[in-house]
Amino acid sequence: MDFHVLDRADGREDGADWTQNYSEIPANPGISLIFESTTKAGLGPRLHLHPYPETFIIRRGGATFTVGKDDIDAHAGQILVVPAETPHKFVTHEGGYEAVHIHSSPRFETTWLE
């Protein structure tokens, strides 16, 4: 059986303070991933969009997302799906944020709007 295991680039074996991007993943699953974990508030990307949907699986903490013209306070246990071509950004809450961001493309394609 063929399978692939991807380890953290920094060699750590935990999920703390982890930001790492994975594109062109072995075995070509058709997605790219961002793993993000921080204990800090006020962090996040500036406004941008993708030509494909992006799914956020929030595992710990939360963030205020701007999706289009709406602000959404998202928290652990929620899944947020941002449609293709929709401007979005987020800012982490007090206590931080941990999530997996799934890009519905094997490569990141981002248009920065600010």
Rank of each mutant, 00 (worst) to 15 (best):
100 V>N: 07
107 R>A: 11
17 D>M: 10
30 G>S: 01
80 L>G: 02
92 T>M: 08
111 T>H: 08
107 R>L: 01
18 W>F: 15
82 V>H: 04
94 E>H: 04
68 G>I: 05
1 M>Y: 13
85 E>P: 04
42 G>Y: 05
74 A>C: 06
85 E>G: 00
41 A>P: 02
56 F>I: 01
43 L>Y: 04
84 A>L: 13
101 H>T: 15
11 G>A: 05
28 N>C: 02
24 E>W: 00
26 P>S: 03
110 T>N: 05
97 Y>D: 01
114 E>I: 00
29 P>I: 04
39 T>E: 08
57 I>P: 02
39 T>M: 06
17 D>S: 13
71 D>F: 02
46 R>T: 07
4 H>W: 00
35 F>P: 01
23 S>D: 15
61 G>K: 06
38 T>W: 11
26 P>D: 00
85 E>V: 08
52 Y>L: 04
31 I>M: 11
38 T>S: 11
91 V>R: 13
77 G>N: 08
52 Y>N: 05
13 E>D: 12
87 P>I: 03
5 V>L: 15
23 S>C: 04
105 S>I: 11
6 L>Q: 06
3 F>S: 08
34 I>Q: 07
72 I>Y: 02
27 A>V: 07
69 K>W: 01
26 P>L: 12
90 F>A: 11
63 A>Q: 02
31 I>L: 14
50 H>W: 03
63 A>W: 03
17 D>F: 14
42 G>A: 03
79 I>S: 07
12 R>M: 14
23 S>A: 13
5 V>Y: 06
64 T>V: 14
1 M>L: 10
59 R>A: 06
15 G>E: 04
16 A>H: 11
59 R>I: 12
50 H>S: 07
44 G>C: 09
69 K>G: 05
40 K>T: 07
53 P>S: 12
56 F>Q: 06
25 I>P: 09
91 V>F: 09
27 A>W: 02
20 Q>V: 07
103 H>Y: 13
31 I>K: 08
11 G>Q: 04
32 S>V: 12
73 D>C: 06
2 D>T: 15
29 P>V: 00
62 G>C: 07
34 I>F: 00
100 V>L: 15
55 T>E: 15
9 A>N: 02
86 T>R: 01
46 R>M: 06
95 G>V: 04
86 T>I: 12
101 H>C: 14
108 F>N: 05
91 V>A: 14
